[in-house]
Design a protein around this nucleic acid. Structure first.
Lengths: 160, 160
DNA sequence: GTTATAGTTGTTATATTATAACATATCAAG
DNA sequence: CTTGATATGTTATAATATAACAACTATAAC
């Protein structure tokens, strides 16, 4: 567990670090981090919180970008399929990846009160099911773990 | 790993077993397994495959039930919230639970070709994140693992 | 037996999330 | 300069899900 959303941390550093990592990876992989894509990444990085496509779209609109759904969904597709962001299926929402460049099966801690999302260390989520998959003769390509509960901040509010 | 979807098994037995377990649990818990609810459970049990709410609705319509969305969603809510079915978030679809009555954090093997879904043994998915959660001071209430890949049947088709 | 009451179902309308399809623009390679 | 690949703009629509309220049903309290 490292920069886990719920702990106090230098978030500005956290953002800058992510962006420069992504920029570097894009250069190396000949991917184009266009203005919209970069902006969406920034939006996702702003808080460790899941954001729906339409909320992102609202922010893009304020920024003067076109605001039709495909604009957001395409940028999100780019970010997700290149591992720079993840989709939280439970919330139909997206967050920036906290472990850019590190190969990992993501695992999320999702607060059901504030929708903050922490990404756990790149544990081998896949490995957990490995035996199961072998027995079943099933080839796992991707595995995602989503855990829902209460984050430390919201817990304080409920039971101070 | 037991009655895993992908293995040949006596599916009729599998269905009957699930239904009678659910009936028993409903009696004990004073829950009412109304005709629609039972029918939706049967529909979900028919194959080890995820079904969207609107597909279920189509089947209900053929059966003479009312076919407005809330009919299906309510029955599904009932089944899911009582642990008789699960929602596969990745697919926005539902399957019957393979481990009715056994407390478990579900883990699914989802075939991306045929949408068959196998539910892994009630492993302690939660436990995997336990350490992580403790460190983060996060209280996990529910955890779901969704793994996508290729099931044995579809693998045969691709590489015979 | 009537009357609350809690739970379920029926129905209409609408919200939310996501994609298809096609036009236009940009830019690098040949 | 033209071709091809990639990205963006735009319109329309598909797919998924819920809100809100009315009507019905069983049962438990009186």
């Amino acid at each position: 567990m490292d920069s886990l959303a719920f702990k106090k941390h230098n978030h500005k550093h956290c953002i800058e670090n992510s962006i420069s990592k992504v920029e570097l990876m894009c250069e190396n992989a000949r991917l184009i981090l266009t203005p919209v894509r970069k902006r969406v990444l920034e939006i996702l990085l702003k808080e460790h919180q899941a954001l729906g496509a339409y909320k992102i779209l609202d922010i893009l609109r304020e920024d003067g970008f076109s605001s039709q759904p495909p604009i957001a969904y395409r940028a999100l597709d780019f970010l997700v399929s290149n591992g720079f962001a993840h989709k939280i299926e439970r919330l139909n929402a997206f967050i920036a990846c906290s472990h850019v460049g590190e190969k990992h099966s993501p695992a999320f801690l999702i607060c059901r009160m504030c929708e903050a999302v922490g990404e756990a260390l790149p544990i081998t989520t896949k490995g957990i099911l490995n035996e199961t998959a072998l027995t079943a003769d099933f080839v796992i390509e991707e595995a995602v773990l989503e855990a829902e509960g209460i984050c430390p901040n919201c817990k304080e509010v409920v039971t101070p």
